[in-house]
Design a protein around this nucleic acid. Structure first.
Length: 574
DNA sequence: CCTACGTCTACAT
DNA sequence: TAGACGTAGG
């Protein structure tokens, strides 16, 4: 993805930077790059469409990073990809094909019981779906994080926002892994930001003005730079054989005119060049310059830069390679996360109805890593975890869906508008304190806080019984650990979704007593099944793959266990 | 010197 | 998978 070898070529212009340099500023986030990284940690669950909580780990990953920014008083603006641009369709199709074959291979390995091989293959099969993005958006909404879904490429949207004044919703920099952002003309791009907030920044202004830096761009302007990138090979157009970034840079430096370069190329490499290269080249350039984006202020579809006359004149070719026009109402709904940008249909509510419960809850995160747990005050989201009255029963309540959605419209409007004043004080955040080794004036405060937290956590994790209030829908698959009902051995039925009034009061989670979960015929619910589960378990245990594997036993054991759980929950659905 | 190709690793447990 | 990095060959 992006421009081949561009970052390597631009190395001299890279400067290490910490995100805290953007304190008080708005910074755009290319959602795809964090989604993709986060998805590695739960690729199998995603591919199997498991119902375990683990599947939502990518959201935790994402929110940890969002919270890192908020911790440093940086305002995140998350930008999602929308529909596919037609000229990228071929690339997309191929990727999908590969993913599917990998997924099938993985399934085969899984049936053989070769879990390790399967999970490796699953990693290659992960796909970031609009539904995943939508789930993340639910979380962002509940945390009052600004976001926008681009009509097409997120890169273009980010570039557009980068060149907008802050007052109009502009951003000061973009965090991404994709070198295309430079090609689109983002003045400041931060690559490879790690979990501590360190990243590598390239600023276009510095690139163009640096006086004695290896590859000189002094005679360049944005248009020439974009031209260089396209010459080097981009997602929309592969490069002419033998031309890489360096040669592209040399050509642009020498001729400083795209048309001249194209004719020179034709003379020199005419035989290796496709007939329509020049035409495709101009189309590719146009995508980078005039891509369609969502105008946050007018709430309409717009071109990044207005199309010039000459373009409209040569309208023999339709402009659909930029992505087709979309009616205003639809772009708006897409941008605000209410419509699937690919299908342009509403998201299935059931996909996400019970979603916001876990992922955002700092309490949940806190169980995985020690987190700072400040008291949270928010009106449009659930959440409670007493810092003080942590009774053994971990209670979870939330507003009814009805209340939640009625606020949605107004909440959204607030989201899209730039933040005013200093509401930072009321902002909740969770924070992995390992990051704290760096700054902060008062280490004592932090340590004291840590102690409090660890105390609270001890109490909570020791008590493994959770009380679920009546009326709360329980999906057995939500519990990754084995479930042991009070009336052991008997069949407990749980109705799905629509079931209103109570099914059970206590769910005990233990590690020894593993129980399978299978669907009951002619019954709208789930039940326990000892045997089917046992057989699956032994099958997996006996598989050659799990027996050997040297190295750290503790690690692999844990991994195995978690894999077994995933598989169990998978089998339970079939 | 440059491209193109092979290999490694990210992620986070 | 896609990017980073090293290196064989033009």
């Amino acid at each position: 993805m992006g421009i081949k070898d561009l970052l390597r070529f631009m190395k001299p212009y890279v400067e290490p930077i910490h995100i805290k340099n953007y304190a008080g500023k708005r910074v755009g986030i290319d959602a795809y790059s964090w989604l993709h990284k986060g998805a590695y940690s739960c690729s199998m669950e995603l591919c199997l469409d498991s119902n375990s909580e683990r599947k939502l780990r990518y959201i935790e990953y994402f929110m940890h990073r969002v919270n890192l920014l908020r911790y440093y008083n940086v305002t995140p603006v998350v930008v999602f990809d929308g529909g596919n641009v037609p000229c990228k369709a071929a690339t997309e199709k191929e990727r999908n094909k590969k993913r599917n074959t990998n997924r099938e291979l993985a399934m085969a390995k899984l049936k053989e019981g070769n879990v390790n091989a399967a999970s490796e293959l699953f990693q290659r099969a992960v796909n970031i779906t609009p539904v995943m993005a939508h789930k993340l958006i639910q979380t962002l909404k509940s945390e009052n994080i600004e976001f926008v879904v681009a009509p097409y490429e997120a890169d273009a949207q980010l570039a557009y926002l980068s060149n907008l004044e802050t007052e109009k919703g502009g951003i000061a920099a973009v965090i991404t892994e994709d070198s295309d952002l430079l090609t689109y003309g983002c003045p400041a791009v931060i690559f490879k930001m790690d979990r501590e907030g360190n990243g590598e920044r390239i600023e276009l202004e510095k690139v163009f003005s640096a006086e004695s830096c290896k590859p000189s761009f002094q005679s360049f302007n944005m248009k020439l730079f974009t031209g260089m990138c396209v010459l080097a090979g981009c997602d929309f157009l592969p490069s002419v054989p033998g031309i890489g970034v360096a040669r592209a840079h040399a050509l642009v430096s020498k001729y400083r005119n795209i048309d001249r370069i194209l004719s020179v190329l034709k003379l020199e490499k005419g035989d290796q060049m496709p007939e329509d290269y020049a035409k495709s080249f101009k189309d590719a350039l146009a995508v980078f310059e005039h891509a369609r984006i969502y105008d946050i202020n007018t709430k309409e579809l717009k071109h990044m830069k207005p199309l010039p006359e000459s373009f409209l004149e040569s309208l023999d070719e339709d402009l659909n390679f930029l992505g087709p026009e979309i009616p205003s109402t639809i772009v708006k709904a897409i941008a605000e996360g209410n419509l699937n940008p690919s299908t342009k249909e509403a998201f299935d509510k059931s996909e996400c109805s019970r979603l916001p419960l876990h992922p955002i809850d700092p309490h949940t995160i806190g169980q995985l890593k020690k987190s700072e747990v400040p008291t949270i005050k928010q009106d449009n989201c659930f959440s409670i975890f007493g810092s003080q009255n942590t009774n053994k029963n971990c209670t979870v309540t939330r507003l009814s869906d009805k209340d939640k959605y009625s606020n949605e419209v107004t909440a959204l409007q607030k989201l899209i508008m730039p933040l005013e004043t200093n509401e930072t004080m009321t902002k909740p955040f969770t924070f992995d304190e390992t990051h704290l080794k760096v700054p902060n004036n008062n280490p004592f405060r932090i340590r004291k806080h840590e102690e409090e937290i660890s105390l609270v956590q001890k109490e909570e994790t020791m008590e493994e019984i959770s009380i679920v209030s009546s009326g709360e829908y329980i999906d057995l698959n939500d519990y990754m650990s084995p479930i042991n009902f009070q009336e052991e051995g008997s069949i407990n039925l749980l109705k799905k979704r629509k079931f209103e009034n109570v099914c059970l009061d206590k769910v005990e989670v233990t590690d020894e007593q593993v129980s399978g979960v299978t669907e009951v015929e002619n019954c709208d619910g789930l039940c326990l099944n000892m045997e089917s589960q046992e057989s699956v378990k032994s099958k997996i245990r006996n598989s050659s793959d799990l027996k050997g594997s040297g190295g750290s036993e503790k690690k692999s054991k844990k991994k195995k266990e978690s894999n077994i759980r995933t598989i169990l929950s998978f089998f339970s659905k079939v």
